[in-house]
């Protein structure tokens, strides 16, 4: 059951974003920024956690989930450290994802050469 929920919720988020891509002149980069910020906002007003509980990876894998993760980390850090938490929470929360993307990509740049688009 959790696979079905992940599939349809994740798919539905992507399908909705597709409308944004096709109907507006928003470039992919702007859409990604919009998603992360919206995720943080939705999470902070308590709307995203229920979705994450319901859909699992369907809510955490899309970039909205990245925003959700950032907010969760921020909240936890503020609760523990106060003002200092405002400056540690975000990066702590997304550290695994960002580090992985940077490190793997750097290694990839050693292995792979640029290729033509088909």
């Amino acid at each position: 059951m959790d696979y079905i929920n992940a599939f349809w919720v994740g798919g539905a988020i992507c399908a909705l974003v597709q409308i944004l891509l096709d109907k507006t002149k928003l470039l992919p980069g702007r859409v990604m920024v919009l998603l992360v910020c919206s995720g943080a906002v939705l999470s902070s007003i308590g709307l995203y956690q229920p979705l994450a509980d319901y859909a699992g990876a369907g809510a955490s894998v899309p970039l909205l989930g990245f925003g959700h993760l950032l907010w969760k980390g921020m909240k936890k850090a503020i609760d523990q450290q106060g003002i200092l938490g405002l400056f540690t929470g975000g990066f702590t929360a997304c550290s695994a994802g960002v580090s992985a993307a940077l490190i793997f990509s750097w290694i990839a740049s050693l292995i792979f050469r640029p290729k033509m688009k088909k």
């Binding site: 994740g10 798919g11 988020i13 992507c14 399908a15 974003v17 597709q18 944004l20 891509l21 096709d22 992919p28 859409v31 990604m32 998603l35 894998v61 899309p62 970039l63 909205l64 989930g65 990245f66 994802g97």
Partner: peptide, 8 residues
Amino acid sequence: GAGALVPI
């Protein structure tokens, strides 16, 4: 399209 852009 968005199906490949939106996920991590």
